[in-house]
Amino acid sequence: LVRYRTISKIPQITLNFVDLKGDPFLASPTSDREIIAPKIKERTHNVTEKVTQVLSLGADVLPEYKLQAPRIHRWTILHYSPFKAVWDWLILLLVIYTAVFTPYSAAFLLKETEEGPPATECGYACQPLAVVDLIVDIMFIVDILINFRTTYVNANEEVVSHPGRIAVHYFKGWFLIDMVAAIPFDLLIFGSGSEELIGLLKTARLLRLVRVARKLDRYSEYGAAVLFLLMCTFALIAHWLACIWYAIGNMEQPHMDSRIGWLHNLGDQIGKPYNSSGLGGPSIKDKYVTALYFTFSSLTSVGFGNVSPNTNSEKIFSICVMLIGSLMYASIFGNVSAIIQRLYSGTARYHTQMLRVREFIRFHQIPNPLRQRLEEYFQHAWSYTNGIDMNAVLKGFPECLQADICLHLNRSLLQHCKPFRGATKGCLRALAMKFKTTHAPPGDTLVHAGDLLTALYFISRGSIEILRGDVVVAILGKNDIFGEPLNLYARPGKSNGDVRALTYCDLHKIHR
């Protein structure tokens, strides 16, 4: 019993810090008490220290592992850092350059016999395009090294910054494609005289377009951006097909006994025919423009016929181009109408809503002055909100995010209106959640004399007048207030005048 009563005193000691020596009952000389009392004092002292730490809000209350900052290894790049964003855009520009100039170089340097010394005699450094290609190869190699040090988000939505895990993730992902696209074939085969082989191998750079397509997928929600990307894709495919079309004609031209190829026909049409040795002929500019003209006309199913396939190889390629053109029509131009419709969806919704308003007016036989006010209010409210119901949009977000959005939407009023000066951010967040926005066209009466005042109004834009009878008592403008002081009276009061809008007004109100 003594032991039980001794232990039962522990909660009292913990909360009230009572010393055991003052209790005459606990001072009985028993061996059990002498053993338990020192333990009680020690526990009391420890609990006292913990309570003191909690009340003082000291940093040592938290466990040590929670006080440590997340460790980022040296030379690790955050995937959302500004440097990584700028670097990704730079790589994107280099990939676009590669997609345009690599097929052009591979096709127009394929057994090209233009006048001038061969590239091997001039030297590697004197070729501007080769120098640019070398810079692109170096940048792609540097990009691989950067990807080995860039964080990523795993399946659990955690940012991984450990170098080993980053390397394994990159090896399992895009490393092989990036490595093949970054191989400097110019340096590996330079001086061997195989410019045709170098041009063909350099087309491996186009593998990076797969990554670019995935990154550009984030802009699919913007109709104008999608339309622009589709047109660029169409032009890029036409450019690639033009390079292939020229390569076919250029390879067949020296081996044909009869002059029936499209390059021969082009030379005869523009007065620059090929001679018996295969030299001469149109310039590279004429060849490229004509090839691009043929691919565009074939892809769009126009086909004027002034550039036509004559050999079997050219006919087979033309059939493939027609098939590609039909697929592009289905996948690209078939979506253009939907994209344009999405661009004008706001206008369509406006006309639909206006039609419903006019049908309501016609069905209920609203008189002319009231009908005009109804239409003007709808037009003004639509121009202010673009038909978007803010309350319906915010309803799907958590309250903390709703408060931040409301604070942002009402920031101008909260910053410049005098009653809100000096208020804490928590108070402003709470008030912003209570605001209701209303609009009024010129001549609209917001409050009639004798109406119950259940709200306090803040003028965000425009001006109003307060009338008693036919006498203008006051004219209020931006950041002015009218209405009933909230919670100042037990019952809502009545208006002693009319409140009429002089201009288009936007008002925020808080109800009782």
Rank of each mutant, 00 (worst) to 15 (best):
H408K: 01
W382P: 03
R74F: 08
G193A: 06
P254Y: 14
A423H: 01
A291W: 01
H380G: 08
M179E: 01
A238M: 04
Y274N: 01
C427H: 03
L401S: 01
I183M: 04
M328H: 01
V393E: 03
A181R: 01
I339E: 03
F420Q: 01
N306K: 01
T445Q: 13
S298G: 14
A449R: 09
R362M: 01
M139G: 04
T290V: 01
A99C: 01
C406V: 05
T352K: 12
K215N: 04
K434N: 04
G164Q: 11
I284D: 03
A225P: 05
D143L: 01
E376P: 01
H448I: 04
H416L: 03
R165T: 08
W240P: 01
V393F: 02
I332D: 02
T438E: 08
L446V: 08
Y104L: 01
I339K: 01
V100G: 01
K287Q: 01
M251H: 04
E158R: 11
A130Q: 05
F378Y: 11
F228Y: 01
A119V: 09
L431W: 03
A130N: 03
H169S: 05
I339S: 04
L428N: 03
Y288C: 01
Y274Q: 01
G426I: 01
K418M: 08
L241V: 01
P82L: 08
I324E: 01
R373Q: 12
N265L: 13
A242T: 01
G281D: 01
I284C: 01
S301G: 14
A213Q: 06
E195N: 07
L230C: 09
Q253P: 03
R429A: 05
R211V: 01
T300L: 14
K272T: 01
I405G: 02
L394I: 08
G305W: 01
I248T: 01
R362H: 13
I138C: 03
F435R: 01
M256C: 08
R371N: 06
E221N: 06
T76H: 03
V131I: 14
S383F: 03
D137R: 10
P103V: 01
D178M: 01
E314T: 01
V131Y: 04
L370C: 03
K285C: 08
Y97T: 01
